[in-house]
C-alpha cells in the first residue's frame, strides 16, 4: 500500500478533518442541549433563593419521610431482583432446555409494559375492588395505598435489570470453570461462591447499579399504587410532583437536585464497574 492510499484509508475511517470537527461539534451541541442544560437548570432553580431555602426543603419532615420510603423500597426491591437475576442467569446460561428463548422474552417483558400499567395490574389484583380485595379486607391486610404496593410496583419495573446484565456475560464466559470445580468435588454452593461469583462480580454490580437507579426514580407505577398520602406513602419523586403542583418551585427543584446528585453518584459507580468489566474482558481475550 503506498502512502496516499494509506492516507485515504484512514480518512475513510475518520472522514476529512472538516467533517470530523463538524461531527464533534454536533456531538457537543447535542450533549449540551439534551443533557447538560436539563442538569444545569435543576441546580440553578434549586439554588435560586440561596442555600438556606434549598437545605430547608430537603430537611423538611415530609421530604425526609419520602427519602426514608424511597430508601426502604430500594432496599427491598433490589435484593429481590438481584436474587432473581442470579437464578435466571444461572439456569439460562448453564443449561439447554425447551422454551428458553420464551423465558428470556418473559424476563424482558416488564421493559415493554408502561409503568402506569404496572401500577394498574396491582390495583386490579389487590385493590378494594380487585380480585383479592375482599379476602385482603377480611384479613385486614392493606397492600394498595401502602408500603407493600409501592414495593411491588418497584419490583415489577426493575425485574429485568440484573438478569439482563448477567445472562450475556455468563453465556460468554461458558461453563468450563464450573465443570472443572464440580469434577474436583465442589458442591453447587461452593462452585457459585468460589468460581462463578468472582467472575461475574463487576457485571453483577453494573446490573445492581442500574436496578437501583430505576427503583429510586420510579414514578408512574408507584404513583398509581401510592395514594399520595403526604408523610406516609410518598416517595421522593412523588414528593417532587406534589411540591411542583403546589407551585413551590424552589422546594421541588431542591428535592429534585437531591435525586440528581444520587443519579450522578450512580453514573460514577456505573463507570467504575464498566471499566472493571472491560478490563476483565480484555484480559480474558489475551489469554
Amino acid at each position: 500500500m503506498n502512502h496516499s492510499n494509506a492516507m485515504s484509508a484512514s480518512a475513510a475511517r475518520r472522514g476529512s478533518p472538516a467533517a470530523r470537527w463538524l461531527l464533534i461539534a454536533l456531538g457537543w451541541l447535542m450533549f449540551l442541549l439534551f443533557l447538560a442544560l436539563p442538569l444545569a437548570i435543576v441546580l440553578t432553580q434549586a439554588l435560586a433563593l440561596g442555600v438556606g431555602p434549598f437545605l430547608a426543603a430537603i430537611v423538611e419532615p415530609d421530604a425526609l419521610s419520602a427519602l426514608r420510603l424511597t430508601v426502604l423500597a430500594v432496599v427491598i426491591a433490589v435484593p429481590l431482583n438481584l436474587l432473581f437475576g442470579l437464578s435466571a442467569a444461572w439456569c439460562v446460561s448453564k443449561y439447554e432446555f425447551r422454551g428458553k428463548s420464551l423465558l428470556v422474552t418473559l424476563i424482558d417483558l416488564p421493559f415493554s409494559v408502561s409503568p402506569v400499567i404496572a401500577g394498574l395490574i396491582y390495583v386490579l389484583l389487590f385493590g378494594a375492588q380487585g380480585l383479592l380485595g375482599p379476602w385482603l379486607d377480611d384479613h385486614d391486610i392493606q397492600i394498595i395505598f401502602a408500603l407493600p404496593g409501592i414495593v411491588l410496583a418497584t419490583v415489577f419495573v426493575t425485574v429485568p435489570f440484573v438478569a439482563r446484565e448477567l445472562i450475556p456475560l455468563m453465556q460468554e464466559q461458558g461453563s468450563q470453570e464450573e465443570e472443572a470445580a464440580r469434577l474436583l468435588g465442589a458442591s453447587g454452593w461452593q462452585i457459585f461462591w468460589h468460581v462463578t461469583l468472582p467472575n461475574i462480580k463487576w457485571g453483577l454490580l453494573y446490573g445492581v447499579v442500574l436496578c437501583t437507579a430505576r427503583a429510586m426514580g420510579e414514578f408512574g407505577a408507584v404513583s398509581v399504587v401510592s395514594g399520595h398520602i403526604r408523610g406516609q406513602t410518598n416517595t421522593l419523586p412523588l414528593h417532587v410532583e406534589i411540591l411542583y403542583n403546589e407551585y413551590n418551585i424552589v422546594a421541588a427543584f431542591s428535592v429534585a437536585s437531591l435525586l440528581l446528585i444520587l443519579a450522578l453518584c450512580i453514573l460514577l459507580l456505573k463507570q467504575w464497574s464498566e471499566a472493571h468489566l472491560d478490563r476483565q474482558r480484555n484480559s480474558a481475550a489475551e489469554e
Binding site: V42, Q45, L236, A256, A263, L267
Partner: peptide, 21 residues
C-alpha cells in the same frame, strides 16, 4: 459518562427540568 444520565435520573426530575427549560 453522561450519555446514561436519562436512565439514572428519575423521570419526574427530568419532567420538571425540561418543562422549566
Amino acid at each position: 459518562a453522561m450519555i446514561d444520565l436519562p436512565f439514572a435520573l428519575p423521570t419526574a426530575v427530568a419532567g420538571i427540568a425540561l418543562t422549566a427549560l
